[in-house]
Design a binder for these strands. Structure first.
Length: 269
DNA sequence: CGGTCTACCTGAAAGC
DNA sequence: TGCTTTCAGGTAGACC
């Protein structure tokens, strides 16, 4: 399940293979993703990829005539392979390059997206997004001020893209545990001091995951490269019923907004 | 407008 | 064993 670190790792993984390369062909094997893949993406043919950027969990493959916007959804992954490599099941969209390589979007559940944005335009998916978590625009003051008057649980609050982007279920669980904050606590009733503890923890958790992922990038261009999933030291996520690493109490599971939420009832208040 | 809920998907795992 | 059900979850949009 790609969260922001996985998306950033994917960006770093594909960039050296496709930057400054010319797209020779766009092949849409199955255009029925979250939204139909627009014909506009064919405009990339014959154009050079000038840059590969990330905003939230979206990747932008930028050219002079516009940008392809990619989202990995729940189950998506990107691979760079030789064009002769046989397609795998669920390889839905493919960009061929003048260096003999192909970028393939594989997405079994098809929650992902492959969209188009003309120069100077901002696609609607980018409207109303909160700050990037790893920039200075995201700080404790922002969380504190955004949360005043909000009754929503703090876990759902930090997962809200309007508040801050890129904090998915796994990292929300992990960050709240490390900060000692109960996931159900009302966002609007949490002190500035507690947000001052939480904010750097979110940043550190995401940054550490990106660094770990970076070490697995070597094989990105190989057919069996498996970017997106890397060894991550998870303290609570997926550990329901196991003992808390801090106090030994049995980790609890509740559901918040239909999402699995794991926490320690002793360490998180 | 804030808050909550749902649809979109497939495959793995659990349940029967 | 094999069929059926549940669950996983990011995000936009519907809904009250």
């Amino acid at each position: 399940m790609p969260e922001l670190p996985e998306v950033e790792v994917s960006r770093q993984g594909i960039e050296p293979h496709i930057k400054q390369k010319v797209v020779t062909e766009v092949r849409i094997h199955n255009g029925r993703l979250r939204w139909p893949v627009p014909e506009d993406v064919q405009r990339l043919c014959g154009k050079t990829i000038d840059a590969v950027h990330r905003r939230a969990k979206y990747l932008l493959l930028e050219s002079k005539v516009g940008s392809a916007i990619l989202h990995l959804g729940m189950s998506g992954s990107l691979r760079v392979v030789e064009q002769s490599e046989p397609l795998k099941k669920h390889d839905h969209v493919e960009l061929l390059f003048d260096n003999g390589l192909a970028l393939r979007l594989n997405d079994p559940r098809r929650f992902g997206a492959f969209l188009w944005q003309s120069p100077g335009e901002a696609h609607t998916v980018f409207a109303k997004l909160g700050p990037e978590p790893l920039t200075d625009d995201f700080d404790a003051k922002h969380l504190y001020e955004c949360s005043r008057g909000k009754k929503v649980a703090v876990k759902q609050f930090i997962m809200d893209n309007h508040v801050v982007v890129g904090v998915g279920n796994i990292y929300a669980n992990e960050s709240l545990f490390k900060a000692g904050i109960h996931p159900k606590r009302e966002a609007g009733k949490i002190s500035l001091a507690r947000y001052q503890k939480l904010t750097p923890i979110i940043k550190d958790t995401l940054a550490a995951a990106i660094l770990q992922g970076g070490t697995t990038l070597k094989d990105f261009a190989q057919s069996d490269g498996k970017p997106g999933y890397f060894a991550q030291e998870l303290l609570v996520y997926g550990r329901k019923g196991e003992p808390c690493v801090q106090c030994g109490a049995e980790l609890q599971e509740i559901r918040l907004g239909q999402r699995s939420t794991i926490y320690c009832k002793k360490c998180q208040r």
